[in-house]
Write a protein that binds this DNA or RNA. Structure first.
Lengths: 406, 406
DNA sequence: CAGATTTGAGCGGGAGGAACACAAACCCTG
DNA sequence: CAGGGTTTGTGTTCCTCCCGCTCAAATCTG
């Protein structure tokens, strides 16, 4: 019931609009900002003045393109004025990154995670240790906005409780709390499902830039989905939304890791692909590599396995196109590799299993960010507090006079 | 790019918050509004004063409940100060309603629509004629906010083009434009899918009041879905979202009206239920009535048919619970009748085909609004413009002095 | 009936953007 | 190279809108 608005709300919203624009579309001139926001030059001046005074932005000489009129200074965000720390817990790797305003990656590190190395506390330790291996070292604590964590599992967004994470064998693990305690910083730790973060990253920096209704499907051993509705992530009542890998797709189907059977991921996940290609279901990343190597070399079994997997993908995808009416479907992980080989198969089934109207509007593309999408998405989520309220934490550090010029 | 906010934005937002609250939660005292919005007494006084001055609201003596302190006058919306005209095109009926502020139904009429009576222009004529059969007659044009239309079909929300409506045999029918031309009013005509409107009605006035993440599933001959995310309808890129009846559920399955095969509605729609109960698939409403009559009388075949349909419902419902993480599933149409007989079957399959975390949070209930839900939802959508900007169309009719009191 | 409590009434103040006038910086033309 | 046209920054004034405060009104309690 915080419905009431006041003057400060307006200022916050306007500052936020400016910072959001700069963060998503890059540096722009003040007059561009006037055009984009509809605010007056006076207002933009005051607002940008506040941002520069607080150190979040800088104004540089205009990039004059030979147009008449007084040149407008270019406003850019200061990447290291506010940064996100993000972590990703992958199937066989751990990653950490520092991402600054504007989406500038200030540092990334990856490390292998041996299978079976699942113990929560040691993973938390490993993540924190990764920070010291960053080229730029640990960021100063007072510029860190928040910590974002991507994990392949069902995550309660409120507090970062990992309800289940099959790849890690986790059930009811309070990852958010553990990491927050270990870091001992005064910033929030935000844990999200990796597909939910992947779609955000692809929307901000990847294949879905500028498109507001996106379905992202990430396939590896398991299959996860992330949905963007009107530019905002669909999280559901508690953050569990997007578990499309466990949609009942075939009957009776084989047992799934989740305890059910016939789940979609049992027929489109890595295991199904491997089996079709003549490998054991648990042949892992090496097996997958061999399938794609075979396909690249023209091996008929590998190609047929990819096509069959594409068909299974296309069928259920049709159902989701009917249900969500996305403008774009982004295929990530295994599926982005699969796409070139199975494009026709996917579309053949999609056409048969979707209604003409939503189908006519949708495009299917492979992801462009690769394996780092969840890591980058976690950073985007972690930066959100500054974007939403630029003056809240940083601008008012010293009660800066707004117009310190003249 | 209309990101810029100004002072007037605040006033509009605050007026809107007040009107929305009164519309959804009914009459309240000014002090209640203070508590709910977080605004000050002064602000509420001025805002409510503007509403009463423009005739949208009235202030009556307080309903004193024996609490100490000066009594606070009760603010209520004036139902007939702004009304919506809504229409519904059902399988075998046409309906029209006038709904005022606060959701007060000022008049409803229903008429039979004989099967085969599908010609667009005659249906449009019939709808408009219905208005004259309303108890209160046609509303004065200047209090009509908008016209809302519910139709069982795939509707492009932008302009009300009905892409397909299988029950009516329509393809590419510009229903919105035709109705607007026939009415010749200067208000917008808003056409939406009936399930999308049904979920809105159940949220505002029915089984889902107070719950912001809702999946509504409406089953008749076809099956449609409406999703509410964070209190807002999920419409997708063009308004086509929610066509869950055509989710590929079985393979190969029987052909569906949509041209595909194995669609969910082929196993949970009225046809499937009828067939299981020993009737022809096209036995219609009478057939359905006989199935339920049989079940009520304890007929084993009828009961088994209902249970089997419930199982099919529960299986795919599990997938949607995983995908959307709703807090509530509302079953409408046929499914609300089916629910008492098939509750256990639905839950048995739902438990098997959904993940523990989202399942633990979800409840399944039958709809409470019955067949009028789409009609009421259409009215709610059509009232939205006044709720969003109470001063925009009505308040500033004569440039009313805000504080005409004293 | 007196005190406590809650809320309305009314006034002044501050925050924040709009509107306007003017100056600055660039382009182009002759 | 000088002057006009154009675009945009600068700075002041004005308007809108909510907050905070004080006082008065209306109710309950004892």
């Amino acid at each position: 019931m915080d419905l009431g608005q006041r003057s400060e709300t307006v200022r916050r919203a306007n500052l936020s609009a400016i910072v959001h624009t700069l963060h998503e579309d890059g540096p722009q001139s003040r007059s561009d900002l006037v055009a984009r926001t509809g605010l007056t030059r006076s207002a933009i001046r005051a607002l940008v003045g506040e941002l520069t005074a607080s150190g979040l932005a800088t104004e540089d000489r205009a990039v004059h393109l030979g147009r008449p009129g007084r040149p407008s200074p270019e406003v850019s965000l200061v990447a290291d004025a506010a940064v996100a720390v993000s972590f990703s817990i992958g199937v066989d790797s751990l990653s950490a990154a520092i991402v600054g305003l504007g989406g500038v990656v200030l540092g990334v590190v990856h490390a292998d995670r041996p299978r079976g190395h699942d113990f929560v506390r040691s993973i938390v330790d490993d993540l924190v240790t990764l920070l010291d291996r960053l080229p730029a070292g640990r960021p100063a604590e007072d510029v860190v906005v928040a910590v974002g964590v991507a994990v392949a599992g069902v995550v309660r967004s409120r507090d970062g409780l990992v309800e289940t994470a099959p790849n890690l064998g986790w059930t009811g693990v309070p990852l958010g709390a553990l990491l927050a305690a270990r870091l001992d910083w005064s910033v929030p730790v935000i844990v999200r499902n990796e597909a939910d973060l992947g779609v955000l990253a692809e929307h901000r920096r990847g294949a879905a830039v500028g498109i507001d209704d996106v379905l992202y499907i990430h396939g590896e051993v398991g299959v996860g989905g992330g949905l963007l509705v009107d530019g905002h992530p669909l999280s559901g009542a508690a953050g569990y939304a997007g578990e499309i890998g466990h949609f009942p797709a075939v009957r009776p189907g084989i047992p799934c890791r989740c305890g059910s059977s016939g789940c979609w991921e049992t027929v489109v996940g890595a295991g199904a692909l491997l089996e079709r290609a003549g490998f054991p279901r648990d042949a892992g990343a090496q097996g997958i590599e061999r399938v794609f190597a075979g396909a690249a070399a023209g091996d008929a079994t590998a190609l047929a396995a990819l096509e069959a997997t594409g068909r299974e993908l296309g069928i259920v995808l049709g159902g989701f196109v009917n249900s969500f009416n996305p403008r774009l479907v982004v295929l990530g992980g295994l599926f982005s590799q699969l796409y070139p080989y199975a494009q026709d198969a996917i579309w053949a089934e999609l056409e048969h299993h979707s209604l003409p109207a939503p189908r006519a509007l949708v495009r299917v593309v492979p992801a462009t960010l690769g394996g780092d999408a969840p890591l980058l998405g976690a950073a985007e989520v972690a930066l959100e507090p500054v974007l939403a309220d630029p003056a809240g934490r940083f601008g008012s550090r010293v009660g800066v006079p707004v117009l310190a010029s003249a």
